[in-house]
């Protein structure tokens, strides 16, 4: 409530400063060969997570405690359950409560539970919910917009600031609408872009949300990766031009076929 009374520039500074200290999940890059893409474990690290406890929510909504290594690392081996898993970390602080969430995909057998139920499930009191998550064959992309819902105790947080920081150095603050919904356009902030998805490493992002309720300060983060906008090497107008060429070619072929038909050549007997 107090934060809403602060002037916006000060609010932005405060949220940014607070956000930078916030606990969040980061992926740990490791090489996986194509042959082992389905069976390879995934590695993550909980940054600034001293004193936090972690757990894993599986695609069938089962939740298991997750032991953290000394440096906050966790290695998740494929558990045979397909689709979105959720890393959840929580800790109590002198002023309130902190949490960190990250969604990731593992191969396996379908569980019969819609990922919609995984995102809907209440994981922490304060939560940033991707709505929707980029499904299979899709990912978060720069220059593309994706929506998130800010929730506190399961209810949407309307008109509330949320801060984005990226590993490429961008920081920006957005506000939720009356339904607690935030539309985020990922910044096209990759310092170097090479043609092709395979030649560009994804960047990390963290969305940070703070909320004060009954004198208790809640802070949560949602982390993930986003990739370079393919428009850097895929031209829409080029595509239209080529398709236009195809129309002309098809028109010519059609005209030839009609002429052959009219002259009786190739007509069905």
């Amino acid at each position: 409530m107090m934060m809403r009374l602060l002037p916006l520039p000060l609010l932005l500074v405060l949220t940014t400063v607070n956000a930078q200290a916030a606990m969040h999940w980061e992926s740990v890059p490791h090489k996986v060969t194509m042959a082992h893409i389905r069976s390879a474990p995934q590695m993550f690290r909980l940054e600034d997570g001293t004193g936090a406890s972690a757990r894993l929510m599986q695609p069938d909504l089962a939740v298991h405690p997750l032991p953290l290594a000394g440096d906050g690392r966790v290695t998740i081996k494929p558990d045979g359950k397909e689709y979105f898993h959720v890393l959840i970390a929580e800790r109590d602080t002198p002023s309130g409560h902190e949490s960190a969430i990250r969604y990731f995909h593992l191969f396996g057998r379908p569980t019969g539970v819609s990922p919609e139920r995984v995102t809907d499930a209440r994981k922490t009191a304060l939560e940033i919910v991707p709505d929707p998550l980029p499904r299979e064959h899709w990912s978060y992309l720069s220059n593309h917009s994706f929506e998130f819902v800010l929730r506190f105790n399961g209810k949407p947080l309307a008109d509330h600031p949320v801060t984005l920081t990226t590993s490429n150095g961008t920081e920006l603050t957005l506000k939720s609408d009356a339904n607690g919904r935030v539309r985020l356009t990922f910044p096209d902030d990759f310092p170097e872009v090479h043609p092709g998805f395979m030649h560009n490493k994804p960047a990390g992002f963290t969305l940070r949300l703070a909320h004060v309720s009954q004198g208790k300060r809640y802070l949560t983060t949602l982390a993930g990766d986003y990739r370079t906008d393919p428009a850097h090497w895929q031209s829409f107008y080029g595509g239209v031009l080529v398709a236009g060429g195809g129309v002309l070619l098809g028109g010519f072929l059609g005209w030839r076929l009609r002429r052959r038909g009219a002259s009786g050549k190739g007509r069905m007997k």
Partner: peptide, 9 residues
Amino acid sequence: DTLFGMILA
């Protein structure tokens, strides 16, 4: 793209 254009025509 060419195939798509050809089908249109």
